[in-house]
Design a protein around this nucleic acid. Sequence first.
DNA 1: AATGTCATTAACTATTGGATTAAATAGTAA
DNA 2: TTACTATTTAATCCAATAGTTAATGACATT
Lengths: 121, 121
Amino acid sequence: MSKNLDATLAALADPTRRHVVELLRERPRRAGELAAASAMSGPAMSRHLRVLRASGLVEVEFEEEQVDHDARVRVYRLCPEPFVDLQAWLDQVQAFWSNQLDAFKTHAERTHEHTYRGEDR
Amino acid sequence: MSKNLDATLAALADPTRRHVVELLRERPRRAGELAAASAMSGPAMSRHLRVLRASGLVEVEFEEEQVDHDARVRVYRLCPEPFVDLQAWLDQVQAFWSNQLDAFKTHAERTHEHTYRGEDR
DNA sequence: AATGTCATTAACTATTGGATTAAATAGTAA
DNA sequence: TTACTATTTAATCCAATAGTTAATGACATT
């Protein structure tokens, strides 16, 4: 439904970017710190951060207004909104879950062995 | 963390596949029905369904054991597990949220106008 | 048996995505 | 000013993804 869910999920679909999220979950960090922590070149990380920015999952802050400010560094921090939106979508999907689960269980009792879950898992 | 989160998020990142999920959320449906509902060719939908299958988000069922069974049709239904896993990951990220939010608000009061959220939103 | 239907796979094309190196931008420090 | 640091952008390459039409497999219908 939400148009932005697309960008959010696309951003989170990449393991590197999820790792960044997990790092930022603890505290805001500098771009270079994130690159180093992910054993990744600066430019590569920069592109990932651009994607995360565009999706609204993170925001950047310049170090101005700080006691020992260095205007070169960019500090990234997590933004809550997209996560909340994703939660909302998941809740909406799972709102139908109880009946689905009932139907599933009822069915599974009858024809469980004909269920096919794909070739690769 | 979970290796499968990758496949789950990659699968859900596509709008067509999310649409399928939203359709299946109501009830199980046949492959052809999903293709028609998404105004998409059969083969294209088939590929999407393969991705959804591989990620464990859906499973297929043959129509055997049914009163008016037609062995050609495949009925797809939603699987709960990956959604639960995703919920768990989100919860884990948001467990750190209260402090983050506090820090964010405190900071925002001081330097809100220097915050930059990306060029395209 | 012959023809039509449901769904998937194959083969091909176009687009997107991530990684790299090199260059640019902006700022610090000697 | 000159050299060094932090980060982003540019140019390029390769791999992965999504769509199309045509072909195939398996079954249904007459």
